[in-house]
């Protein structure tokens, strides 16, 4: 005769026993396995900067500030252009007044605190411009250090900030080796370049790419082998910034030299 007690006991045992193999079925979902094998993602945004083509006009900075509503005269910017002047004595002089927003009209190098350093033409061994923006790292330290998860990486590789969630501690600003982060002067939350995510996700180019008349800036999808940017990155000699930090940056540079910081 089966008692109520033993019936309950046995049913629980049976449910428990069945749950185990059922959960194993869930573990080996073949669809998910297939998807995860090739990591399933069709898009990974990357950026290509051709430093040989940059003339330092600053249109990209202007375009970015307008598009992304970063107050025009605030001394912060999502993207900027650096000027490098290497003299024959081996010294490197760098500046980026107002992030290069107005171009580089003054020949003298801005050395801060309102001072400028004149460099004679005959002393210069080489000079060039380097545009900078967020590297949308594969291993982003800013995402790692955010205490509330307000900054996160999308499926297609772009690192975004949730302005409604950011507490403004500044840990991400400290954690970025490239100095791309700052506090938005109006929203008072962490702010950075996001490859104009609102544009690229709608099939458009970023504001800086649109603004560059020289083709120094290009955006592409590294997962698409037919993408011209992918072709250049995979076949030509490109470099990235500060690889030693292990961040795996995804902004690639053509013509990068050792002087670039």
């Amino acid at each position: 005769m089966i008692t109520r007690r033993s019936f309950c006991k046995k049913s629980l045992l049976m449910i428990g026993g069945l749950a185990l193999p059922l959960s194993a079925f869930e573990l080996f979902d073949p669809k998910r396995l297939l998807a995860e094998k090739g990591d399933g993602k069709k898009v990974r945004w990357v950026f290509l900067v051709d430093t040989e083509k940059c003339v330092g006009c600053g249109f990209c900075v202007k375009g970015c500030k307008t598009e992304n509503e970063i107050p025009y005269d605030a001394n912060v910017t999502r993207t900027w252009v650096e000027r490098y002047v290497v003299t024959k004595d081996g010294k490197t002089h760098i500046d980026s007044p107002k992030g290069g927003r107005d171009g580089f009209e003054n020949r003298a190098i801005d050395i801060g605190e309102g001072k400028f350093q004149e460099i004679k033409n005959e002393e210069i061994s080489k000079a060039f411009f380097v545009p900078k923006l967020c590297n949308q790292c594969d291993n982003p330290p800013c995402v790692q250090v955010c205490p509330v998860g307000a900054t996160y990486q999308t499926e297609d590789g772009v690192v975004l900030v949730d302005r409604k969630w950011c507490i403004g501690c500044g840990y991400c600003v400290m954690g970025c080796p490239y100095g791309v982060r700052f506090f938005h002067p109006v929203y008072h939350t962490a702010e950075k370049c996001n490859f104009c995510y609102h544009r690229i996700s709608q099939g458009m180019k970023t504001a800086c790419v649109e603004a560059c008349a020289f083709g120094a800036r290009r955006i592409g999808n590294i997962r698409d082998p037919e993408d011209p940017v992918t072709k250049i990155i995979t076949t030509e000699r490109v470099n990235v910034l500060k690889e030693e930090y292990g961040t795996t940056p995804q902004v690639f540079y053509l013509g990068l030299t050792k002087e670039v910081k």
């Binding site: 650096e82 980026s96 900078k132 400290m174």
Partner: peptide, 23 residues
């Protein structure tokens, strides 16, 4: 004014967004 600008003095080359954020 940008956060950090009020108390930061910069000399030589610093990235445009760099300020003393932790005071």
């Amino acid at each position: 004014m940008v956060h950090g600008e009020a108390w930061t003095l910069k000399e030589f080359f610093t990235y445009p967004n760099e300020y003393i954020y932790w005071t």
